[in-house]
Design a protein around this nucleic acid. Structure first.
Length: 437
RNA sequence: GACUCCGUAGUGAAGUGGUUAUCACGCCUCCCUGUCACGGAGGAGAUCGCCGGUUCAAAUCCGGUCGGGGUCGCCA
């Protein structure tokens, strides 16, 4: 009967069996230590019998083996216990030398990320590397819990679409039984349609963008949290919801995984004392940034990357918040589905910035059918195209005022840990240059 | 897409014109009874990304090419 590494300490004096991977050998002559890795972590095994040590000759790290031994209390052992009088059983011998070392810190230097992904299958066996993805799983679990508690219905929407749904980002086109299909750039239209049924919906799924963007914050296949909420009173309510959720999720991550985050060198978490994520309009940020840096951005419609970093540093230092909203984007930035404030020349659109990076966009949508037709026609879109026709049905037959967000999970993980590149937060990243593994 | 930087053993790095290309980790052999990034001695392992050029001489300089990084642009 197999027990797991973390349970060895609770079987002192008993003969137990562990199964796992050979993680490390240390031969000290008459005494050999090996570490065996399983899904919970490592077990230290002490081997004195020469014949048992000999079983390991020629076998590399990664060898799958079982060890039977006496669980022994030992303060010098990691975890306070280790196995003595070990009998080894080799289950899957590995004789090829692994191309990288997995028992030491895995390099995340920008210029070596290519090697990181080339040997992802192996470096993910590194316990430190695993923490990134355990944290990622924990973050999405926490998001689901929060949204479930707030009566959001989780949905799944198709990623194969009949056509480009919007003029903005580049789409991947593919052959679909002789017809042209595209990969979804976001579940936006579907989640809006579902507001007409469930009021509140969310989806955690993949989106695909054919942007030729070679930067540290772009992926061609990304994981998005998409939220849409009906019967909102206005943009403020959308911003509050996303702000509250993000604070809750971050606080929970730091509570549950504080040690892991510390060992990953994550920054301390700073959240606003009053629980309200500070917000600045784009115009305000341009003004503040221009004044502080003498670099005039007042003519820009969007925030430039350096402004995102600057306002985040400002918010952390002056307002004690790692989160900040940039709101009221100029009307020129509006897409046809956005609700605009024509009088003030702004669009109800807020970007949530976290530690220097945009992690979510939170707009209010236009929900009036006639106005949608008007805005789409103005944008030069064919309202009869299957990509829009069914979308518009939802508006025609009644949608309340609604808004939500597209929230980049990869970026959230990246910035929570303090990684330098969004790809480091992704198991098998897809970018302009990489399609495997 | 633009600009810019970089390609050297399995991995990470040093080497800016001159004998046999240096180091660390890993690997192999031997020694080592409390290691935990163990330690010690020895060894194997590199057509210096590729093609061409300059030169008596090229990892090093030049051109091209392929691959990668960073920044910007683009970006639901």
């Amino acid at each position: 009967m197999r027990i797991l590494s973390s349970d060895v300490v609770s079987h002192i004096g008993e003969t137990v069996r562990i199964e796992g991977w050979l993680h490390k050998k240390r031969l000290l002559g008459g005494l050999t230590f090996i570490n065996v890795r399983d899904r919970r972590g490592l077990t230290q095994v002490v081997i004195k019998d020469k014949d048992e040590v000999e079983k390991l000759r020629g076998l590399q790290i990664g060898t799958v083996l079982a060890v039977e031994g006496v669980s022994t209390e030992e303060p010098r052992a990691p975890g306070g216990a280790e196995l003595h009088d070990a009998k080894l059983e080799i289950m899957v011998p590995v004789t090829d030398e692994p191309p990288i070392e997995i028992d030491k810190p895995i390099q995340h230097k920008a210029e070596n990320l290519d090697t990181l992904f080339e040997y992802r299958t192996l470096n993910i066996r590194n316990l430190q590397e695993q923490k990134i993805f355990k944290l990622r799983g924990s973050l999405t679990r926490s998001i689901r819990q929060f949204l479930d508690e707030h009566e959001f219905t989780e949905i799944d929407t198709p990623k194969l679409l009949a056509g480009a749904t919007e003029g903005g980002a580049e789409v991947f086109k593919l052959d679909y039984f002789g017809k042209e299909a595209t990969l979804a750039q976001s579940p936006q239209f579907y989640k809006q349609m579902m507001v007409g049924a469930f009021e509140r919906v969310y989806e955690i799924g993949h989106s695909y963008r054919a942007e030729p963007s070679a930067t540290s914050r772009h992926l061609t296949e990304l994981t998005m949290l998409d939220i849409e909420m009906g019967f909102v009173s206005g943009h403020e309510e959308v911003l509050d919801m996303v702000g509250d959720m993000t604070q809750h999720v971050l606080r929970e991550a730091y509570d549950k995984h504080g040690d892991d985050l510390k060992s990953l060198n994550a920054p301390d978490l700073k959240l606003p004392a009053d629980g309200k994520v500070p917000r600045f309009t784009v115009a305000q940020i341009h003004e503040m940034y221009t004044k502080a840096t003498k670099n005039d951005t007042t003519k820009e419609k969007d925030l430039i990357p350096d402004e995102e970093k600057w306002i985040c540093e400002y918010a952390r230092k002056e307002l004690g918040s790692d989160l900040v909203f940039a709101t009221e984007f100029p009307i020129e930035a509006a897409k046809f589905y956005h609700m605009v404030d024509a009088e003030r020349g702004v669009v109800f659109w807020g970007d949530l910035l976290f530690r220097g990076l945009e992690i979510a966009t939170c707009p209010l949508r236009e929900h009036n059918y006639d106005k949608m037709i008007e805005q789409m026609t103005k944008a030069g879109l064919d309202v009869e195209h299957p990509g829009y026709k069914y979308y518009l049905q939802a508006f025609r037959y009644g949608l309340p005022m609604h808004g939500g967000c597209g929230f980049g999970i990869d970026r959230l993980v990246e910035k929570t840990i303090g990684l330098a590149n969004v790809k480091e937060a992704t198991l098998f990243p897809r970018d302009i240059n990489r399609l495997a593994p």
